[in-house]
């Protein structure tokens, strides 16, 4: 191949690659596993969803449920979703780009409160703004739908107190230090602990809601030979990480409680008795899409803040829970 034909070949490849994007959008829509569901009927009002990230298992279930719900309303709306890789700057860009397409409804699951300015901009531009899972300060948005992390933290604390009979030491493995759910899940738990003066809480490291980090943290913690009776992790991934570290070190059984209840793996652990309980962190996506559809039909919800209830999963309720939630992550 000579030089010029090489250039031609590359140019053609590039052109094909870019042109190919067009075809792949419809592919995603039918596959349903992707982030964007491009509807063909462009005359329908656009409902745009800016997701914080599509990586962690809870968000994957959130995405799946949201898309499934939107699929019920294909005659009312065009639904599109973009994730922001947990980066505020990227999310601001995603929302700016959505605004070019002038959506009627904007669903936002904020990366952090820092998207407030952008949310306000969309609201000022006349879009109906629905916040999912995480809220932002101020009042320039229309509806918030999410779980109540404080309440979940309190219930987790109550269950912990019950399982330990009000006595012992709990290691709390924390999520991302600067995130609001971390604070709420921690504070709610500590509030409940006031009822159990016999329980001591060791505040563990920020393990970023990641299994690997929690596992490493637990391995190091076990090296310190500090006695403890239970682990409270701010999410299931970290609870599993801690469990794996303890299992590898042949640590005698401890009480373990997690939060989220969105993974089959966690439910299996609960069935096996490895882990004691998890609290479902409700997925706000379907409710958000319902509200969007109501809005398109001229109906607005009466409450500005909608808190979805949690559900405790234990060995006794695990089977029923699994049947009730068919979309659990793999």
């Amino acid at each position: 191949m000579n030089m010029r034909s090489k250039i031609g070949f590359i140019g053609a490849g590039l052109a094909l690659a870019l042109a190919g994007c067009n075809g792949s959008s419809s592919g995603t829509a039918t596959a349903g596993g992707g982030n964007a569901t491009a509807a063909n009927n462009s005359s329908l009002p656009l409902v745009a969803f800016s997701q914080a990230n599509s990586q962690d298992p809870w968000r994957q279930v959130f995405d799946k449920d949201t898309k499934a719900e939107a699929a019920k309303y294909t005659s009312d709306m065009q639904f599109e979703e973009q994730e922001a890789e947990d980066d505020v700057n990227k999310q601001v860009g995603v929302i700016d780009t959505f605004m070019v397409k002038k959506p009627k409804v904007l669903l936002v699951s904020p990366v952090t409160e820092a998207v407030q300015t952008e949310v306000e901009k969309a609201h000022d531009a006349g879009e109906f703004v629905i916040l999912l899972d995480r809220s932002v300060p101020g009042t320039k948005w229309d509806v918030y739908v999410g779980g109540d992390n404080m309440a979940i933290g309190r219930q987790a604390g109550d269950q912990m107190g019950k399982l330990l009979n009000g006595k012992g030491t709990v290691l709390m493995i924390r999520g991302t230090a600067d995130a609001k759910p971390t604070k709420d899940r921690g504070n709610g738990f500590m509030e409940s602990m006031k009822k159990f003066p016999g329980i001591k809480v060791i505040v563990g490291d920020d393990c970023g809601y990641q299994r690997g980090k929690a596992q490493t943290f637990m391995e190091n913690f076990l090296q310190q030979k500090q006695p403890f009776d239970a682990v409270y992790a701010h999410n299931d991934e970290m609870a599993i990480g801690a469990y794996q570290a303890m299992k590898a070190a042949n640590t005698p059984k401890k009480v373990i409680i997690g939060i989220d209840g969105c993974q089959k793996e966690m439910i299996e652990h609960i069935k096996n008795g490895d882990i004691d309980a998890t609290f479902m962190y409700p997925d706000p996506g379907p409710k958000g899409v319902d509200i969007a559809d109501d809005f398109l039909k001229g109906k607005k919800p009466t409450d500005k803040n909608i808190f979805l209830p949690t559900e405790m999963v234990t060995k006794d309720t695990a089977d029923a829970y699994e049947k009730e939630h068919p979309n659990l992550a793999g």
């Binding site: 590359i10 599109e80 780009t97």
Partner: peptide, 27 residues
């Protein structure tokens, strides 16, 4: 990123194209 989002293309598919294009550029 912008074109793919406006065109309603999946983000992760967009990442794939980006990687391919960078490889072509280096080549």
């Amino acid at each position: 990123n912008n074109v793919l989002q406006l065109g309603g293309v999946d983000t992760n598919i967009a990442q794939g194209w980006k990687g391919l294009i960078i490889l072509l550029a280096v080549y």
